[in-house]
């Protein structure tokens, strides 16, 4: 009987047919017939005197007694055989049942170990997925900020191109645009250390390029030269409101001559001759020069 057969046997309750229960008669006959034989043997042993033995022989009592002992012992042995056979069958099937239990346990253990391994793998995958999700979220966040920064750049240069700063000096137009970018979505993106530096560099180049393009355009409208003097760069139109100038002075107040000479120039340009301005500021310069310097002072310096 193989393992599968045993399982089938047990499932179908066939086991009870293999081992019929010992009935009460077998057990009573086994125990009681030995007892009966004992009682007769007891009598046999005390009927020992010579004349008693002669009498028992002549009357046949002795033979009957022996016959009774034999019958009871034979029956007892017969029943012992039944009981022993029953016990052997039980022991045999019990062994197979234990074997079956052991196999089932091994099977369950193996499956549990597979399950544990699977659980470990699932957990690992889950952790990887979680990492990926975090990365993706970060990426999406960065893209979102990138978009905002990009929109911000477009908005600011659109405003400049639309003539919103026409009442400002050329340098003030550049400075206002750069300050607006610094304090808005673009500035937030630029200052976030987790965002991609390459994109930041790309944005800065874009700002520089856009600024140069717009300044050239504005320059051509006001001056015939493409390399005006420093005073011309900082010169406000006559119709400029006092408030606009004051606001610009307020904004640039933080700059020193040493750290941010181009920004600092806003506060001194009206009072000082060009020769007294910072040596960092050329007397004549093209749009590229002021854009590089101003972008550096507003966006890059701490």
């Amino acid at each position: 009987m193989n393992e599968r057969d045993i399982a089938k046997t047990i499932t179908n309750n066939e086991i009870l047919k293999i081992i019929p229960a010992l009935n009460q008669k077998v057990i009573v006959d086994l125990v009681n017939s030995i007892n009966v034989a004992k009682s007769t043997i007891n009598v046999q042993s005390v009927r020992n005197p010579f004349f008693t033995r002669i009498f028992d022989s002549i009357t046949g009592i002795s033979a009957k007694r022996q016959k009774s002992i034999n019958a009871n012992l034979a029956n007892g042995l017969d029943n012992i055989t039944n009981v022993v056979s029953y016990l052997i069958k039980i022991a045999g099937v019990s062994g197979k049942v234990i074997n079956n239990i052991s196999k089932s346990l091994t099977n369950v253990n193996n499956n549990l170990s597979l399950l544990a391994n699977f659980s470990y793998q699932t957990r690992k995958l889950f952790e990887e997925l979680n990492d990926r999700q975090e990365m993706l979220e970060k990426k999406i966040n960065q893209v979102d900020y990138e978009n905002k920064a990009d929109r911000h750049i477009t908005q600011e240069f659109d405003a400049w191109a639309a003539g919103r700063y026409d009442n400002f000096s050329l340098s003030a137009r550049l400075y206002t645009t750069l300050e607006n970018l610094n304090w808005g979505d673009f500035g937030s993106y630029l200052r976030n250390p987790t965002f991609d530096g390459v994109v930041k560099e790309r944005f800065l180049r874009q700002i520089v390029d856009k600024s140069v393009i717009q300044l050239r355009l504005d320059l051509s409208k006001i001056f015939t030269t493409n390399c005006p003097t420093v005073k011309e760069w900082y010169q406000f139109p006559e119709e400029t409101l006092i408030d606009a100038k004051s606001a610009l002075l307020y904004l640039s107040e933080y700059a020193t001559e040493k750290d941010r000479p181009f920004i600092h120039a806003f506060s001194v340009i009206d009072r000082l001759p060009a020769s007294k301005l910072s040596s960092e500021i050329p007397r004549f310069f093209k749009p590229q020069r002021i854009v590089q310097a101003m972008a550096e002072e507003v966006l890059s310096k701490k």
Partner: peptide, 17 residues
């Protein structure tokens, strides 16, 4: 004690002597 009465004459019955 040594009654010759034989329980095995009644094979179908359970007998306690």
């Amino acid at each position: 004690s040594d009654s010759p009465w034989n329980r095995f004459d009644y094979t179908d019955s359970t007998i306690i002597e």
